[in-house]
Each structure stands twice: as structure tokens, then as C-alpha cells.
Amino acid sequence: MNLLALVGRVFLAFLTQVGQFTLFALVSLSHCLRPPFYLRLTARQMIEIGYYSLPVVGLTAIFTGMVLALQTSSGFSELAAESSVAMIVAWGMTRELGPVLAGLMVAGRIGAAMAAEIGTMKVTEQVDALYTLSTNPYKYLVVPRLIAGATMLPLLVLVADIIGIFGGYVLGTTKLGFSEHGYISATWRHLEFIGVVSGLTKAAVFGLVIALMGCYHGIHSRGGAQGVGKATTNAVVSASILILLLNYVLTEMFFA
């Protein structure tokens, strides 16, 4: 009896959260379309997300490209190796690993920072103060982050794709002894438009999800430092799970 009540309560709480989040997302997105716009703040967020995430995303991408090449080469005969390694690296980076890994890294870096910053503003009444100064917190805090997230992540993923493929190239030509010309031309042969575009679309969606989760958990945090800590964790965990889930859904939509 008690157990059923518990399950019921957890389920209801979950539904409440989903409803609350959906409402938050709709309101935020509708504010993206209506002025006033805070260009200065949007630019600052773009720099924060796009520029300062470059090192993390770049490092992740280069090692991923290298390890892809290394793993693939051991699975093929020497003859087929050059073309298949180039293909797997190009496909893997552009379609899956570029967007997913960049998404997860940025979720950790940016999602957490957004939740912490907005959460602190919430619990110290700065969000209330915005209201009293005739400024809508959705427009002032949320919209710039959503726009920056959705536009900067595709750029980051584009960079990650290039660096990842470069990683595969470096490993292939130095360690595996492939010819430089052969590897590059094999990469060009296997790079397809739809693969790159699907990856960049995923990136835009992931960027939006990261920013939405960061802002949502920030703005709904309560109860001092502990509440902000919890909001930060929740923002990162929920964004990461959603990224993996949506990655499947989007792959299905593009390729199935």
C-alpha cells in the first residue's frame, strides 16, 4: 500500500516537472521572437559558449578522431584499411561523435554555469529585482542563452568535425603508415552532405536543450546554496540524458 503511494507520488512529481518544463520552454521560445532583444548580452553568451568551449571540445575531438582510427585499423586487412579508416572517422565524427561528445562537454561546462548563475540570482532575489525594474527575466536572462546555445553549438561541432578528422589523419599517416594523399582523398570520398548536416542539426538541438535545462533549473531553484547546487547537478544530468535520447530520435528521423 505504502509502496504504491510512493510510486504514485514519484510519478505525479515527474509529470508536474514535465508540465512545468514544457510551459517554461514554450514561454521562453515565444520570447525569442518578440522584442526587445538584448544584443549585448547575447553576444557575451555567444563568446562564453562558442569561444571559451573551444579548448575542451577541440581536445575531446582530436583524441576521439585518433582512437577511432586506431580501433578501426585493427579490424581490417591491410589492403582495405586506408579507405575504411578514413570512412569510419569521417562518418563517425560528423554523424555521431562530433555532436554527441561536444554536446556532453558543453552540457557540463555551460549548462552547469547557467544553472549556477541564474540560480544564485534567483535565491538572492536578483530575478525579482529584474521584474521590479521593468525587465523581463525571460528576455534578459533566458533568451540570450537559448540563442547563443542554438547557434554556437553547430559552430563548435563543425570545428570538432574538422579536428577529429585531422586527428584520424595524423594517426593514420604517422602510426599506421597510410599515404597522406590517399587518406585525404578517401576522406573526401566518404564525407557526405547529409552526414554533416544531420550532425549540425543535432548540435543546434543539443545547444538549445543545454541552455533550456540550465535556465529552467536555475530559475526554479530555491533555498540558498544547497538549492543552487542541486539545480546545477540537475541541469547537467537532465541535459546529458536528453542529448543521448534526442540523438537517437534525430538519427532515426534522418536516416531511417
Binding site: 548563475e117 532575489e125 536578483q126 525579482d128 525594474l133
Partner: peptide
């Protein structure tokens, strides 16, 4: 509604108990 509320609040000033200054 949000917009009418904003118009109303433009005639108000509020000093919060904890100051609530924007620390950025």
C-alpha cells in the same frame, strides 16, 4: 498580464531586504 504588469512596475521603486544587487 506580463506587459501591463511591467508598465505598472515602471512606476514603482523597490529596495529589497537583502539589497538584491546584480552582481555581474
Amino acid at each position: 498580464s506580463g506587459r501591463e504588469r511591467a508598465r505598472m512596475l515602471s512606476r514603482f521603486g523597490m529596495l529589497f531586504q537583502g539589497a538584491a544587487l546584480f552582481d555581474s
